[in-house]
Design a protein around this nucleic acid. Structure first.
Lengths: 111, 111
DNA sequence: TTCCCTTGCTACATTTATCGTAGCAGCACG
DNA sequence: CGTGCTGCTACGATAAATGTAGCAAGGGAA
């Protein structure tokens, strides 16, 4: 597997030494959660991922993918295509109950 | 409890009719996850919340708080102070395992 | 009343992030 | 050779976040 470059893009909040803050910051960036969500079942090529993410700009997607790779959640397969690492799969399952919650949420709120 | 204005700030992704997308988008905005996290134990005044969020600009915090109120996750108490609604507390517990995950994550990744 | 302090909230100029479109180099297939 | 895919990038336009300052409303205390 190819390694993400380690030019250490600083994660806001990591300075506090509280990893939860760094994680919340990373996941709180645009498209981060969505990318993990779309990769939850199978690896996707960069273009397929873009299609799954409502044609979001490739600029941000590349940026998020690089960050997620540096964080160890996503990896680029040898034959191309982005997939979750073991760690990434754990993370994904951590907030998988969000799906059921979202359904309940809609029924209560009219957003 | 005071109600958040309902001028329907559109949530990106809600057009697809898939509530999980709307939720991922809302939570994927800056400081959203952090705000929920900081309110997890007790209500905080707007200024205390700001302090807890590394002195983030009050402009975004107000925006996020309004969105979270409209979504039904956060409410403004009568005597002042922001707190989680019942729904918000459920949501918060949904990704509470993230805390433990973050600790394991740091030990594996050098971010 | 006046003074002081805290509440939620906003204005505004600057900086940063994201968007949208286009296009690059590399590789495989025919 | 061209065709079509891959990951990835440049760049101007636009939207969002930052940082600083300050507002009006309300609650005491003197």
């Amino acid at each position: 597997m190819k390694q993400a470059s380690s030019k250490t893009r600083s994660v806001r909040g990591s300075r506090t030494g509280r990893p939860i803050m760094a994680l919340l910051d990373l996941l709180g960036r645009r498209w981060s959660l969505r990318i993990l969500w779309e990769l939850r079942e199978e690896p996707l090529t960069s273009r397929a991922l873009r299609a799954a993410c409502d044609e979001a700009s490739p600029t941000v997607l590349q940026a998020r993918l690089t960050e997620l790779r540096e964080a160890g959640f996503v990896e680029l397969g040898d034959g191309g295509g982005y997939g979750l690492t073991v760690l990434g799969r754990e993370l994904c399952e951590t907030f998988m109950p969000l799906h059921r919650f979202a359904e309940r949420w809609r029924s209560k709120s009219g957003v």
